[in-house]
């Protein structure tokens, strides 16, 4: 009799858990659908950023500040103002870079740089809002509703599992863009990227797509 009761109790618990898991899957899927829908209306973004790098081997954080511009289908301009002035512009498959020390523009082909390709593909995934496609690599959990926050844990056997421990994304109140992205790596490093003064679908100065320009 005792064994029978334990069996019944286990069956009930498992059913509850299955129902809960099903509901939370439905929740996360509808949240991701909603995000993808909201962010798909974005044609261009310009936003200030502060990147804090907390490296395991160092006591103090390294802080980079700058501005990023993205325009569909394939224009990206990442401009760093401190601690050094640097810019990288990606137009389709061409990458142009400029820095204050050399004061030269260098062009690189994306095709000949697999590491660039991988980094840019990752960047596009995180910034585009297409998180449903990342569900094969990450377990995605909704951790907060207001502001909306998601946690991404790499799945066993996935490529990100080799180096990423956890990624957390916090969205702006209107869900139209990211407010903050934090990446914890397995080696103990932690990177936090905060976005401020975000403007969506506003005109962008054409000079922004030149690596050497004074656009700020």
């Amino acid at each position: 009799m005792k064994r029978f009761l334990i069996f019944i109790f286990t069956v009930i618990c498992l059913s509850w858990y299955a129902a809960y898991a099903d509901n939370s899957n439905r929740d996360i899927n509808s949240t991701l659908d909603n995000l993808e829908k909201k962010m798909s209306g974005i044609e261009s973004i310009q936003t200030d950023f502060v990147q804090e790098k907390d490296l395991a081997l160092f006591n103090e954080k390294l802080i980079l500040k700058g501005k990023v511009f993205i325009k569909k289908p394939m224009l990206l301009s990442w401009r760093v103002f401190t601690p050094m002035r640097y810019s990288i512009v990606i137009r389709g498959s061409t990458i142009s870079q400029w820095d204050e020390d050399t004061n030269k523009v260098q062009q690189v082909s994306m095709a000949s740089n697999p590491s660039f390709q991988a980094a840019i593909a990752q960047m596009q995934n995180w910034f585009s809002g297409a998180y449903k496609s990342m569900q094969s690599d990450y377990e995605i959990t909704l951790i907060k509703d207001n502001p909306l926050a998601l946690v991404f844990i790499p799945k066993a056997g996935s490529l990100p599992q080799n180096f990423i421990k956890r990624v957390e994304i916090v969205f702006q109140d209107d869900l139209r863009y990211l407010k903050e992205i934090s990446i914890s790596e397995k080696n103990g490093d932690h990177t936090r990227l905060k976005f401020m003064n975000t403007e969506i679908n506003q005109p962008i100065d054409a000079k922004t797509w030149e690596a050497k320009s004074s656009v700020r």
């Binding site: 790098k53 081997l57 980079l64």
Partner: peptide
């Protein structure tokens, strides 16, 4: 010494 070198966009190159 300890040195961490990264690209100017913050991607670690070597440590």
């Amino acid at each position: 010494f300890v040195v961490s070198c990264m690209s100017p966009v913050g991607v670690k190159l070597f440590e």
